[in-house]
């Protein structure tokens, strides 16, 4: 406990925070696309799980973690397509549908894992991402260590933040998405195809959640275990709210959750005499606080959660 705040500790903590925030960041960015268009995506958890599983399968059979990642993205989109069909086209309640997607994901990933690999005592391991040092930048003391010695997916996640910001606020595509989420009827009257935009946004959220899942299985653990996402999808949903539906806000929220997670692991390891269950709770308590609305509801897209009917 005494040397908990020395510099090596801090570097390790922050570096881990970045890593731990990445799966949440991917999924939360995805969730933001969906929610900006007016579709609440509680199914992020399930989409991540499918991505995590598909990533391992892809990497196992091809030997390439990149192909694994692509398989994860496509699988995330596939299950998102199902979600879009139910919520956008058939207009079933979005929350209920999201819960169903999550349950479905737990079932099919466990089933196919056993169908493909049999019942194993030790999870099979696969080729996975290893850290890439960025020349010059990684030589910067402290910062280089924290930011620029990460895996490729980490860089992709962080680059997606400014890209999303640009799409949302500087392009007509983003304006269309925001309009659909705020006032679908107005969107309809100016000829924006509401259902197409929403479907596309849900697919993007599936792709990104799939990426987030594959980061867990190919960037952190090199394996798949049942239900390995364990709530990160829900934290991502909270991060969207906490981040007030803006890319930079979502980045901040994800980092906060990353730090919280990293901190609780390190406190556990340092042997502080707090029951570890309490520490495990920490990120989730943050989630509850976020969702119960210290941010207020006024900033949410107006049509969030309501299917569009002419």
């Amino acid at each position: 406990m005494k040397d908990i705040f020395n510099i090596t500790f801090l570097i390790a903590l922050l570096s881990a925070s970045i890593r731990l925030s990445v799966p949440i960041l991917f999924a939360a960015l995805g969730g933001m696309y969906s929610e900006k268009s007016g579709v609440v995506n509680i199914g992020l958890e399930g989409m991540m799980l499918v991505g995590a599983f598909a990533g391992v399968v892809g990497s196992y059979f091809t030997g390439s973690y990149w192909i694994g990642t692509i398989v994860a993205v496509l699988s995330g989109m596939l299950i998102a397509a199902l979600f879009a069909l139910i919520t956008v086209k058939i207009k079933i309640n979005q929350i209920v549908s999201g819960v169903a997607i999550n349950l479905l994901a737990v079932g099919i990933t466990s089933f196919f894992y056993r169908a493909l690999f049999g019942i194993t005592t030790v999870p099979i391991t696969v080729n996975a991402f290893s850290p890439v040092s960025i020349p010059i930048l990684s030589d910067i003391p402290i910062i280089g260590e924290i930011l620029f010695k990460q895996t490729a997916l980490v860089y992709i996640a962080f680059i997606l933040v400014p890209i999303s910001h640009y799409i949302f606020y500087k392009t007509s595509l983003g304006l269309n998405i925001r309009t659909v989420g705020e006032h679908p009827m107005a969107a309809d009257t100016v000829g924006i195809p509401v259902e197409k935009v929403r479907t596309a946004c849900v697919l993007i959220s599936g792709a990104l959640a799939g990426l987030g899942g594959s980061f867990l299985s190919l960037g952190q653990f090199n394996m798949f275990v049942d239900n390995m996402v364990s709530g990160r999808g829900f934290i991502a949903v909270a991060a969207v709210i906490f981040g007030k539906w803006s890319p930079t806000g979502v980045l901040m929220a994800s980092l906060i959750f990353g730090v919280a997670d990293a901190l609780q692991i390190r406190i556990q390891m340092s042997g502080v005499s707090i029951p570890y269950q309490f520490l495990l709770m920490f990120p989730y308590i943050l989630t509850v606080v976020a969702v119960t609305g210290i941010v207020g509801r006024t900033t949410s897209p107006k049509a969030l959660g309501t299917p569009y009917e002419k």
Partner: peptide, 17 residues
């Protein structure tokens, strides 16, 4: 058929991509 949280400009050009 206007979006209150959008600017006037955004409301005028929306859907004209």
């Amino acid at each position: 058929m206007l979006v209150p949280v959008h600017t006037v400009l955004e409301n005028i050009i929306m859907g004209m991509g």
